[in-house]
Design a protein around this nucleic acid. Structure first.
Lengths: 125, 125
DNA sequence: ATTTCTGTTATAATTCAATTAGAACAGATT
DNA sequence: AATCTGTTCTAATTGAATTATAACAGAAAT
């Protein structure tokens, strides 16, 4: 599992973890029903505190991306149909990014081209 | 100028300000060479501190979206060609959003459809 | 069955970002 | 001249993020 944390980043460590785990799943390097490493072992690997990894896992559970089985471990969820909440989350995030790209002078085709390139690394891309 | 701040949001006030000002520019409601309200007056309108607005303006200047003229005011910059740094910023942000959308089970066409809808509200959309 | 590993929970301390507050300064605008 | 502007400084508060220990109890492994 290739995860790299930048301790000095302005992005919280647990958020970096959430984002990188999502990317691993999107790339298929972590697949549904795969088990995640224990919070203790991953914390040791990354040199961060157990509670920080725990917080990231619970954030992923809140997003319905993994299931946490009490006293046992965490498992990647099946990918199904997005919920309304998930659609709203993506739509809002896209709005922010696309507004910024517009202000930077990027046109529709440029942005879509970048998006297609990125998605080619992900599932169904 | 229609800006709404959620004081209890987990998103910092100055970031909410940055994002909403970017959206106003993307929509054309704020145009190049338009002057932004003074930090004092906008702060009073929104019920936040002057320093918070000032921080947002400086963040927008760092992104090359506005120019701050010392002792005078802030002006929306001309939209030109994106810098490499701006391209990298957008690409990185898109990666994060698109990975999440993939994990949520959204396919390429769904995401592109949402993106096109959003961009239709923005310049060159 | 016992040991080990697991997530869970609780308390505590530290660090830092975000926000607010108040004041003073000096250039720009009116 | 008076007012408005961003700038700078100090100061205080609040809360999030992170780390550190410790103990608990269920799950898994031997």
């Amino acid at each position: 599992m290739f995860i790299e944390i930048e301790p000095s980043s302005e992005i919280p460590i647990y958020t970096q973890l959430v984002n990188q785990l999502i990317e691993l799943i999107a790339k298929g390097e972590l697949q549904p029903n795969d088990t995640l490493p224990s919070v203790r072992s991953l914390a040791a690997d990354l040199g961060v505190n157990m509670h920080t990894v725990n917080k990231a896992y619970h954030e992923l559970e809140r997003k319905n991306i993994i299931r946490i089985i009490p006293k046992s471990g965490a498992v990647v969820s099946e990918i199904t149909t997005p919920t309304d909440e998930q659609l709203a989350t993506i739509t809002h995030a896209l709005k922010t990014v696309l507004a910024e790209s517009t202000v930077y002078g990027m046109n529709k085709d440029e942005v879509l081209s970048i998006a297609l390139t990125i998605m080619s690394d992900y599932k169904e891309g």
